[in-house]
Design a binder for these strands. Structure first.
Lengths: 156, 156
DNA sequence: TATTGTTATACTCTATAACTATA
DNA sequence: TATAGTTATAGAGTATAACAATA
């Protein structure tokens, strides 16, 4: 009779949808010749930000950013620009090519997400529900997979 | 006017929700003293299956299963049982303790998923929409994170 | 002294390849 | 010869720690 926890199935569905979404993400990203972390990073660079800020956005340790940006810079998608105001800082700026790639990437991520199986109305509802789940935390961390981003270890 | 791709925001929401879900998953699993792959494996063992079958369910390479099951067996959650019908095969059977842990794990995964922010009615709708997205593929791969499970490489 | 970015190193998750026992 | 499981190894994605330059 428990009305409290009716969501056995819902959790399963979530796992399944996430698997779909992840597979779609991986193949799209590979198609663009990007590594997953590079793709996540690119998606954060609409406006120029420092490497430190990028690390914050992505929930990565700052040390991890160096290699990711190295790759993006070599491919000519991003430029490191010294900040005159603080010479320790490097601002990350998308090149024209970088902007193109981000745009194409986002476009491809939208398509074929299986979300296409939904009607426009369904998607509207979905948007409303997901927004409710995410809550008003706009800083809601972007998705990255791999090991836990950071789990506070119980110092039992 | 493009009515074709209205889902910029929806994709973002999905990323965010998945990040939430993933964090919840990681901390829950760690709380149970399991590694993520162990948790995924446990969740597949309602019925006894062979290691090979488990690999199939999880989308892991079979070689990866050995270590995972080693850990579960050491913790007394799973037993390897030789199959009399085919002596190469090892059937994986949950112990009583294992059954308890799976139950607790699933319970905790249901709770605090942020899905709780939804009303029962919302959840019902969500279930319907997600089912639509997943389609009738019941073998929809369980979620596992880390590198792409397998991306068919274009033999250009 | 504190902070940005870098380097070096290590750990986790997963795959591939080579092996064994059995079929 | 093919298949189930194991072992050894390698690679990707992270983190932590130590360091240089700047603040």
């Amino acid at each position: 009779m428990r009305a409290a926890e009716p969501d056995e199935e819902l959790v399963g569905l979530f796992f399944a949808v996430m698997a779909r979404f992840r597979d779609h993400f991986f193949s799209t990203v590979e198609d663009e010749g990007l590594t997953p972390p590079q793709a996540h990073a690119l998606r954060q660079l609409a406006e120029p930000i420092s490497q430190r800020e990028l690390a914050g956005c992505l929930g990565y340790d700052a040390s991890h950013i160096t290699g990711i940006v190295d790759g993006l810079e070599e491919r000519g998608l991003v430029q490191r620009r010294g900040d005159p105001a603080d010479r320790r800082v490097k601002q990350l700026v998308l090149t024209d090519e970088g902007r193109k790639v981000v745009h194409r990437l986002n476009q491809r991520l939208r398509r074929g997400t299986a979300l296409e199986g939904l009607t426009a109305e369904d998607r509207r509802i979905m948007r409303r529900l997901l927004a409710k789940v995410v809550g008003d935390d706009p800083a809601a961390v972007p998705w990255s997979m791999g090991s836990p981003r950071r789990i506070e270890r119980r110092t039992s």
